[in-house]
């Protein structure tokens, strides 16, 4: 029976074709895959993630757990597929990853988890809300929505501009920071207008992402029927999910949990669900995307 199945995911090795800074302490890494890997990874959906062996393929295997990263983009190029991740250098795993060079082979499990549910209605409107390291899946989502011709606005929030500085063309921000602009390159790539918010006002709107969203919705009442897609730190997701419930908007959230396998076999990544009795789902298998109402905040 195994042979007849077409696997929807797998363990693959690819070659690093680009590795460069995305912002202060953040890198963008692009891996190219061939053959079956290329075909399988080409089917990845926004919101899905990859489990990366953070070291040269074959060397660190067996000594450290993999690290999960959202897919921030997938591009097809002839018979090959390129997959991008954007990661923050924060500990031993991401430090080892940062030491890898263009030309190195890297081992991934991909694509994993359940991605965002995309709107079926071509007239839908989508709000893409990314905070800090929650931005990568939003870039991928923007790209897919663009292919479907769905109306969309990207929101990029960070404590300060340094985090995203290499991706920002500050001059492109128009006078009113709550008007979508071409300031963020990764959103621009899919012709998606973006609103930038920073806690310290160093770039774009001064304030948090919810305040930016509320400001935007006040100016654009026709967007009150939009679907919210959010990824970022948990307090941000909580604020957005509770806001969505209060104003009766749909909100899909992309969650994180400490993972070991990432493929649904070890039960590490439990996330508590809303409702009376204590119950859990697995972030790696049932998520990482959940309806905001499902989660116990």
């Amino acid at each position: 029976m195994n042979q007849e199945r077409i696997a929807r995911r797998g363990q693959f090795q690819g070659v690093i074709v680009s590795h460069c800074p995305f912002g202060q302490g953040y890198n963008s890494l692009i891996i190219r895959f061939e053959g079956i890997a290329s075909v399988t990874i080409a089917k990845a959906q926004p919101g899905q993630f990859v489990q990366v062996a953070c070291g040269p393929a074959g060397i660190t295997k067996g000594t450290t757990l993999r690290r999960p990263f959202s897919i921030s983009g997938v591009t097809l190029d002839g018979d090959t597929t390129c997959l991008e991740i954007i990661y923050r250098i924060i500990g031993p795993g991401t430090e080892a990853l940062a030491n890898m060079s263009v030309g190195d082979m890297i081992d991934v499990l991909a694509p994993l988890g359940q991605g965002f549910k995309l709107p079926k209605d071509p007239d839908a409107k989508c709000l893409l809300l990314g905070g800090g390291i929650g931005l990568p899946p939003m870039f991928f989502l923007a790209d897919r929505l663009a292919q479907q011709g769905v109306d969309r606005v990207g929101f990029a929030a960070a404590r300060n501009i340094e985090v995203v500085q290499n991706d920002i063309v500050a001059e492109a921000i128009v006078d009113n920071p709550l008007v979508p602009s071409k300031a963020m390159k990764h959103f621009n790539a899919s012709d998606t207008g973006s609103i930038i918010a920073s806690d310290d006002g160093s770039c774009g709107f001064k304030g948090n992402i919810l305040e930016a969203l509320e400001g935007f919705l006040a100016r654009h009442p026709d967007w009150n029927i939009a679907t919210m897609y959010a990824c970022g730190p948990e307090p941000m997701l909580k604020a957005l999910a509770l806001f969505a419930q209060a104003v009766d908007m749909e909100c899909q959230v992309c969650m994180e949990a400490y993972m070991a396998c990432g493929i649904g076999v070890c039960q590490s990544c439990a996330i508590e669900l809303a409702g009376g009795e204590r119950s859990y789902k697995l972030v790696c298998a049932h998520g990482p995307v959940f309806n905001g109402r499902e989660i116990k905040w």
Binding site: L109, I263, A270
Partner: peptide, 30 residues
């Protein structure tokens, strides 16, 4: 099965099964 040819194992051993369903511990679990 997406990662392993299960037919090439010597034997397969399941996760622990208990009489009642178990939620498991609160996270962080690993």
């Amino acid at each position: 099965r997406d990662f392993v040819d299960m037919d090439r194992l010597g034997a397969y051993i399941t996760k622990s099964i208990t009489l009642e369903p178990r939620m498991g511990n609160k996270p962080q679990r690993t």
